[in-house]
Computed example of a mutant assay.
Amino acid sequence: MKRIRSALLGPAIGLAAMAGALSSQAAPIDRWVVTLTNDWSDVTFIGGPNTVAPANPFSMADTLPDGSNPRNLTYDIISWGTPLTEEGRSFLAVDDMATFGGLTTGDSLGVPGVNFYHGNYRQSATTNGSPPERWLDNATLNVRIALTPEGAESSARTFEHSIPIDFRETRNTSSIQSCAGAPWASGITPCPDSLTILDEAANFPFVFDGVSYVLSFAFDPANSLNLTRLDQNEDSSTAWTNEGVRSRLATRLLIRAAGAPAPIPEPGTLGIALAGLALLAVARRTRRA
């Protein structure tokens, strides 16, 4: 986690300083159209001495590896592992490109953002006739952010934002109460995987026509699927995903003028996550028995 923090802190401080240095009397833009385009880079895998690099780990497809197409989009996919069950290899995927309108400056609800998908399946960690594949360790999500004031297409601006991701799967144990993240409610088995999101990656300061803003990517558990629990800490958020299924990790987008207080979620929207919480899934690795 420390290496992620150091990678993010420099750009975040630099952007914040730039945003603070530029001031303007112009009124903030009220409503936006946002297009997000996502690409994976700097992907690394980890495994024991008898493991091998995953075969063909990268793909882009109109369906996820389980054959579903939940948003009628194209998906960027990382796949890995030697399957122990018919569900197949594990994977982490993200919507390749999506456009969202009606994003209002200062609105505490925001608009739906991109989804992430975690195929959380058991994979071989021992040699059984042939060496098993390594599992995902690190990746960087590169996000191209196109912002347009609603109704003013000629004023579009494009920004780049990179989000380092430390992906880990938690080790299964014989007792759920000895799993990472315990104590767990009865009936949860086996150990859930965890995805930890740093707040530093969630907030992107930028300047548009002389006015400073902060775009936040907020985790949206209310519209996620197969999440066991969401833990919120001082500087991060951890989502725990069920095993043996595909989890959907939904996000929301919020925007505010720099210097304005972060919007307080309206009653009934608290499950959407705080504006300072993060975009993405940074998952804690589970070594499966």
Score class of each variant (00 low, 15 high):
residue 7 A to R: 13
residue 9 L to C: 01
residue 10 G to E: 12
residue 10 G to R: 12
residue 13 I to Q: 13
residue 17 A to E: 14
residue 20 G to V: 04
residue 20 G to Y: 02
residue 21 A to I: 05
residue 22 L to K: 07
residue 26 A to L: 11
residue 28 P to T: 08
residue 28 P to K: 05
residue 30 D to F: 01
residue 33 V to P: 06
residue 40 W to H: 08
residue 49 P to W: 08
residue 53 A to Y: 15
residue 61 A to P: 00
residue 63 T to G: 02
residue 63 T to V: 15
residue 65 P to M: 03
residue 66 D to Y: 01
residue 72 N to L: 09
residue 83 P to V: 02
residue 84 L to R: 09
residue 89 R to P: 04
residue 93 A to N: 00
residue 96 D to Y: 14
residue 102 G to P: 08
residue 104 T to D: 03
residue 110 G to A: 03
residue 111 V to F: 07
residue 117 Y to S: 01
residue 120 N to C: 07
residue 120 N to R: 06
residue 127 T to A: 10
residue 127 T to H: 06
residue 128 N to D: 15
residue 133 E to L: 00
residue 133 E to D: 01
residue 134 R to K: 15
residue 144 R to L: 11
residue 147 L to K: 02
residue 155 S to V: 07
residue 157 R to G: 05
residue 160 E to C: 05
residue 167 F to D: 05
residue 172 N to Y: 14
residue 173 T to P: 05
residue 173 T to L: 13
residue 176 I to G: 08
residue 178 S to N: 15
residue 178 S to C: 03
residue 184 W to F: 13
residue 189 T to M: 09
residue 190 P to L: 01
residue 191 C to V: 06
residue 191 C to Q: 08
residue 192 P to Q: 04
residue 197 I to A: 14
residue 197 I to Q: 10
residue 199 D to V: 10
residue 199 D to Q: 11
residue 213 Y to E: 00
residue 224 S to L: 07
residue 225 L to F: 09
residue 227 L to H: 03
residue 230 L to V: 15
residue 240 W to S: 04
residue 243 E to G: 13
residue 243 E to P: 03
residue 243 E to A: 14
residue 244 G to S: 03
residue 247 S to V: 02
residue 251 T to A: 05
residue 251 T to W: 08
residue 252 R to G: 09
residue 257 A to K: 15
residue 261 P to R: 09
residue 268 G to E: 02
residue 270 L to K: 05
residue 273 A to F: 03
residue 274 L to H: 02
residue 276 G to L: 04
residue 281 A to Q: 11
residue 289 A to K: 12
